[in-house]
Computed example of a mutant assay.
Amino acid sequence: MGLITIADHIHDIAENSVNAGAKNVYIKIIETVDTFFFSVEDDAGGIRPDILEKIFDPFVTTRKKEIRRVGLGLPFLKQATEATGGYVKIDSELGKGTKTEALFYKSHIDCQPVGNLTDTFLVLLLNQNINWQIERCYDGECYEIASKTIKEYLGHLDTPEKITLLEELLKEMESQI
């Protein structure tokens, strides 16, 4: 499936928000030596209660059947978190939005590697139709980055130079925590 790192799960959940029509997506990551917590919150209009109650069933998807017949991202996330003693939780209010939270215990033998968060953030931020806000913390040291700020300083990410500059900025911020 390709969801081999925690960063892959974050990307998958954020893409679910985009595909559901979100205009604003807030990603929060709190990492310690032993834990990795993330939440993805959107304003995409929420999930119908009948779908929400069976959201972790791999044969449930909100996509058109011509596009995708199964939805494996959330069942894989649930399996991955629970394998470490963690959890995944989804709160959704129809007409408002959805918040997905996940906790991994990194010291558990079955925990997936964190993966490349810098590349995950870069790929998401390249979609400038979405108002992204990302908060990243490691042992109390934090940084935030928002697409609004990126647009103020770089404008549209329409050249390789601007994309490289953003990538370098993300790497620098990640190295500081």
Rank of each mutant, 00 (worst) to 15 (best):
Arg63Trp: 05
Arg63Lys: 14
Ala83Tyr: 01
Ile13Cys: 09
His9Tyr: 14
Ile145Ala: 11
Asp119Arg: 14
Glu167Gln: 08
Leu72His: 08
Tyr87Gly: 04
Asn116Ser: 13
Ile6Thr: 02
Lys54Arg: 14
Tyr26Pro: 00
Gly73Ser: 07
Tyr138Glu: 03
Gly45Tyr: 14
Lys148Phe: 13
Cys142Trp: 03
Pro58Asn: 08
Cys111Met: 01
Leu74Phe: 06
Gly46Pro: 08
Lys28Arg: 11
Glu135His: 14
Leu117Gln: 07
Glu15Phe: 11
Gly2Val: 01
Gly85Lys: 11
Thr5His: 10
Ile47Gln: 08
Leu52His: 04
Ile90Arg: 02
Thr120Ala: 12
Gly115Ala: 11
Leu169Thr: 07
Lys89Arg: 10
Thr98Tyr: 10
Arg136His: 15
Glu167Trp: 02
Gln176Thr: 01
Leu72Gln: 09
Phe38Cys: 10
Leu52Phe: 08
Leu126Gly: 05
Asp34Thr: 15
Arg48His: 15
Glu172Lys: 13
Ala20Thr: 01
Cys142Ile: 04
Gln176Asp: 03
Cys137Ala: 09
Lys78Leu: 01
Tyr105Asp: 06
Ile109Met: 08
Thr84Trp: 06
Asn24Tyr: 02
Gly85Pro: 10
Phe36Asp: 12
Cys137Arg: 07
Ile150Ser: 08
Gln176Phe: 01
Gln176Met: 05
Lys151Leu: 13
Leu124Ala: 06
Thr84His: 06
Gly21Val: 04
Asp119Gly: 08
Ser107Trp: 15
Ile6Gln: 01
Thr5Trp: 09
Pro58Leu: 08
Ile134Trp: 05
Asn131Asp: 12
Pro49Val: 11
Gly46Trp: 07
Cys137His: 05
Lys78Arg: 00
Ile47Glu: 06
Asp34Pro: 07
Glu172Gly: 01
Ala20Asn: 09
Thr149Gln: 11
His9Asp: 13
Thr35Arg: 06
Gly2His: 03
Leu124Gly: 04
Glu144Asp: 12
Asp12Leu: 09
Phe121Ala: 12
Ile4Gln: 10
Glu168Trp: 01
Leu166Gln: 03
Tyr26Ile: 13
